[in-house]
């Protein structure tokens, strides 16, 4: 179905809906930058950049509250239906996921600072970069799918999340082996594990965004479905 989003008979309602969508994308852009910077600060041992990541969090939190208020206002004053209603519901769920991703990015930055102060790591770097890049792409694609109303792209992100989960478990196993071989590293490796965990969670939240994109576009609730089942549901339409 083609959505004539700009053709609302009330131009003010149009503007309000546009503002909500663009605010969400702005918040998404900020979080994307946060994740990217957090990863970079961790890998380059750049404490200044890490502090910057933590500062952006406040801005993300403010946007979360602002967008939620706007959603509540449109619900109360405009009684949106169909695509407008689905947009409001999807956006208000997406902001929660984005905010959590921002938290995770800040956490990665904080752990990076701590690990820097304790001396350089001898393991995990390659895996962090690898999983980090994948997760960044997922988030980027999820936001892109939202902007373009692209449910198929959204499902592709859910597929990617399965791969990230598999890589996360494999990285965890090798870190456990590392700790057994060198018990003196346990404190620092536990922190490294938290970084992996945070990245994996960012991937999960990106997957949640995608479920909302599918709902937004098709009206179908695909939460808790496997990517294959999501695909099958989309094909049915």
């Amino acid at each position: 179905m083609v959505f004539n989003l700009g053709k609302h008979s009330s131009s003010q309602f149009n503007q309000e809906m546009e503002a909500i969508r663009s605010d969400l994308l702005r918040m998404g852009g900020l979080v994307e930058q946060q994740v990217s910077d957090a990863l970079e600060s961790f890998l380059q041992a750049d404490s200044a950049l890490a502090q910057q990541v933590q500062q952006v969090e406040q801005e993300v939190d403010e946007l979360e509250k602002h967008i939620d208020e706007e959603c509540a206002r449109v619900l109360a004053l405009r009684q949106p239906a169909a695509i407008d209603l689905r947009t409001i519901i999807a956006v208000s769920k997406c902001v929660a996921d984005l905010e959590r991703m921002g938290d995770k990015a800040a956490k990665i930055a904080k752990l990076g600072i701590q690990l820097n102060e304790e001396g350089s790591l001898t393991t995990g770097q390659v895996e962090v970069r690898h999983i980090g890049e994948r997760v960044k792409t997922m988030l980027h694609d999820a936001l892109d799918a939202f902007a373009r109303f692209d449910a198929h792209k959204a499902v592709a992100v859910a597929v990617a999340d399965n791969d990230v989960d598999a890589e996360y478990h494999s990285a965890m196993r090798s870190l456990v082996t590392f700790m057994m071989e060198d018990p003196r590293s346990i404190t620092r490796v536990l922190k490294l594990m938290s970084v992996f965990r945070a990245l994996e969670r960012i991937g999960d939240h990106s997957g949640n965004l995608c479920e909302q994109v599918v709902y937004l576009v098709s009206g179908q609730d695909v939460r808790h479905l496997s990517p294959a089942d999501m695909q099958a549901l989309l094909e049915q339409r």
Binding site: V2, H8, S9, S10, A81, A82, D84
Partner: peptide, 12 residues
């Protein structure tokens, strides 16, 4: 699509 346009006020 016609129903969608009407109930979301995008008719006409």
């Amino acid at each position: 699509a016609l129903t969608e346009a009407y109930i979301t006020g995008r008719f006409g």
